Computed example of a mutant assay.
Amino acid sequence: MKTLSTNQIQHIEEFLISQYHIKYQDTRDEVLDHIACEIEELMNEGKEYDNAFKITFNKWNKDLSPHPWIRYKNVPSFLGRQWIKRDIISIILCMLIGLSIPYLLKEFIEHNNLANILGSSFCLVSILLGGFICIKYFKVKGYRISQLKKDVLACGAISLFYYLMFIGGFTYKLLPLILVMCLYQVYYIIEIQKVRPLSKL
């Protein structure tokens, strides 16, 4: 049974870096393992290494090329496809919940003068969640976690801006966007917990 040599495995890894810019070790190791197995299978069917290499990378080219959606820029397509559906569904759900609840509870919020308390609370929760994630995962690297850290930071920054602009003056009309940001933060934290532990650099 034919197996790849150390030099051939190194050649595959270098190709993943130079051709597809797979910069994170965890993703590269996972892809390398799959590709090496497929090349070995072809070699055991009688193909030479160079030919098996070309056939395998032609097959993987679409999956390893960057995802076309701007949100996943510089992310291999096979990873972007794993995230896109749940990201879109969650964003839509967060928007529906965040935009509808303040208006459905308008009378209750205004009658009890809760707009300022709720607005400040949503902002502070969003800011604190963003800060917690950025500190906890500061040195952790990976495609998904890097993207989620940017999202968390953006939501925290928007929440901080609203907090500083409207502290003491929140109305129920300002609550939807702030609640949406807070719900996004919760979603991002749930997603970060799904990411397998990665090595710190």
Rank of each mutant, 00 (worst) to 15 (best):
N51C: 04
C94A: 15
K54T: 09
I22N: 01
I12G: 04
D87T: 11
I158M: 11
H111S: 06
I127L: 07
W60D: 04
K62V: 07
L164D: 01
I135V: 12
K149M: 08
G131V: 06
D26S: 13
M181K: 10
N116A: 06
D87P: 04
Y143C: 00
L42E: 14
A115V: 03
I88G: 04
Q185Y: 03
V31P: 02
L148F: 07
V75L: 05
L164K: 04
L99K: 04
K62Q: 12
L104S: 04
Y24V: 03
L148C: 04
S18Q: 14
V75P: 00
N61G: 02
K23L: 10
D151H: 12
C37I: 14
L114F: 05
G156S: 15
Q193L: 13
K2P: 03
S126D: 09
L79E: 07
Q193K: 12
H111K: 12
Y163D: 00
D29M: 09
Y20S: 09
I92N: 03
Y49S: 11
D33S: 12
C134S: 10
L105S: 13
H11L: 14
K85F: 11
G169A: 10
N7L: 13
I101P: 00
K141R: 13
I22M: 12
L177F: 06
I39M: 06
M95A: 15
Q147S: 03
S18I: 05
